[in-house]
Design a protein around this nucleic acid. Structure first.
Lengths: 156, 156
DNA sequence: TTGCGAGTGAGAATCATTCTCGGATACGCT
DNA sequence: AGCGTATCCGAGAATGATTCTCACTCGCAA
């Protein structure tokens, strides 16, 4: 089963619309390449490295991938997350992909998404505000990274 | 007032002892430079970049700083955390510095430590195990990053 | 059609980090 | 004390991810 068959749930047209509008507002264009990048990130379901992106879209020049990812970051559509290795990883902003946290394998560096229970989310939100206020910070966002071993690496 | 005068509370002798023992176990030495690095990280109270380390210890060669930080990472005494900018940040392992989370300023990249309330910590621990088990992960550690604006950047 | 601003791709440039290597230093052994 | 060996040190080169440059192309509007 290809991801295409279920893309209705993966990349709703409204997402592309929203991105197109934001780009237009800055006199920028939602080119096919940018669309491909957004689709790729959306369908991956976890933060993706540049090599992964390049191998999933053969022929795509590295410099263009970086340039467009940066452009998408600047309009707040894409976010960069740091993993265990020295490759940056890119994912769609939570605004588009839904709020989630990360499961990081300490051995192989893989990163997966996890979606928190409402109960945990409520506790996190409260705690974040309280703790941050103590130091004069104004928290807009939070992220929980769970470090451990993925199923494959557990078997050793 | 020099930091030396209060070092009793900042870097308990037991910490240096423990590090010395671990290094000895791997036929490595706890050299003065490594000791300085540990003191620096302990006294900073937040993750520190290489430039910060170098400017707080004039004359210290960059390559040596990296080499020794790496050595300390390999024995699990130092941990590397990624910030918003493209500089790695180093901190003492939680085992030595106490469990804590990070407050990250989205504007200036500064990172501060925050110490969680027991209630939050309990909720996080439980949630971590539950969520991770669902995907077959074995979680050993977790970290909460609170993103927002630091007091200085709020004033704009 | 023409003009202009944005996008593209190849390669060079940048910059944090890692590696290399000759010399200095510390610890174990006799 | 003297020696041998393994570790450590510092300076600079090498690596590699990311960013920049620039000439060319493309899409849109007048």
């Amino acid at each position: 089963m290809s991801a295409q068959e279920t893309n209705g749930t993966l990349v709703p047209p409204s997402v592309h619309e929203a991105i197109g509008l934001r780009l237009a507002g800055l006199d920028q264009r939602y080119t096919p390449m940018r669309r491909v990048l957004v689709e790729t990130l959306a369908q991956a379901g976890h933060p993706v490295t540049i090599p992964e992106i390049l191998s999933s879209a053969p022929g795509l020049p590295q410099s263009s991938a970086y340039r467009n990812l940066t452009a998408l970051m600047e309009i707040g559509v894409v976010r960069r997350v740091a993993g265990a290795d020295d490759h940056g990883r890119f994912e769609l902003a939570e605004e588009l992909s839904g709020h989630h946290h990360h499961l990081v394998c300490a051995r192989c560096g893989k990163v997966e998404d996890v979606h928190p229970s409402p109960r945990l989310e409520r506790a996190l939100g409260e705690a974040a505000r309280a703790v941050a206020a103590e130091q004069g910070y104004e928290v807009t966002d939070h992220q929980l990274d769970l470090m451990g071993l993925c199923p494959l690496c557990v078997e050793r």
